[in-house]
Amino acid sequence: MKPTDLRFTRTHEWVYVDGDVATIGVSRFAVDQLTDLIVIDLPEVGRKLSEGKSFGEIESVKAVSDLYSPIDGEVIEVNRAVAADVQILAQDPYEKGWLIKAKIADPAQVEKMLDHDAYQKAIAEESH
């Protein structure tokens, strides 16, 4: 997935939409900020997602960050490979490092998310 094809949240999650299925991950910027990922905690298939609510956690040596769902929906697939080895996420956050796929409840929520340019602008502000 090309980053330019994705939508982003201000909390650094990305979404790729294919029909009514959203693939969700976290951005390269977030991965680099966290540094030295240790472990990731992902939800089970069937778990209901709510926009802005935590669906998992990602840990580095001395920090824990929540993963916030960009949308309402339901988890239909979990990337087991990343759950078992979080380094896959560190190496490749936009392809092999996707986290979950979810059935989208309200497509309008995706429309409200940032596009790639707007996200780049947002993180540029954050680093100052």
């Binding site: 240790i38 840990e59 001395k62």
Partner: peptide, 12 residues
């Protein structure tokens, strides 16, 4: 494994 602990994870 300090991320388990209160100084990092606080209420969780």
């Amino acid at each position: 494994l300090q991320t388990r602990e209160q100084h990092i994870r606080r209420e969780k």
